[in-house]
Amino acid sequence: MDTTFTETLTAMITVLGMLVLLVLPAVIGIARDRRTDRQIREAREARGVQQGQKSSSKSTVPSTATWYADGRRSKKLVSS
Rank of each mutant, 00 (worst) to 15 (best):
D2L: 00
D2G: 15
T3P: 02
T3K: 14
T4F: 08
T4M: 15
T4W: 09
T4C: 03
F5D: 13
F5C: 10
T6W: 10
T6H: 02
E7G: 01
E7T: 04
T8V: 12
T8A: 05
V15T: 13
L16S: 11
L16V: 10
L16T: 03
G17Y: 02
L19N: 13
L19Q: 10
V20M: 08
L22K: 03
L22S: 03
V23L: 14
P25Y: 10
P25N: 06
P25F: 11
A26F: 14
A26V: 12
A26H: 04
V27L: 15
G29R: 13
G29P: 00
A31G: 15
R32S: 10
R32K: 13
R32P: 07
D33N: 10
R35E: 11
T36F: 15
D37G: 12
D37I: 06
R38F: 09
I40L: 11
I40S: 01
R41T: 07
R41S: 10
E42D: 11
E45R: 13
E45Q: 11
A46Y: 08
V49M: 13
Q50P: 01
Q50R: 15
Q51Y: 10
K54G: 11
K54W: 04
S55I: 04
K58W: 06
S59V: 06
S59C: 09
S63L: 07
T64K: 04
T66R: 01
T66N: 00
W67C: 02
D70R: 10
G71A: 01
S74N: 03
S74P: 00
S74M: 02
K75Y: 06
K76W: 05
K76N: 11
V78M: 08
V78R: 14
V78L: 13
S79L: 06
S79W: 03
S80V: 06
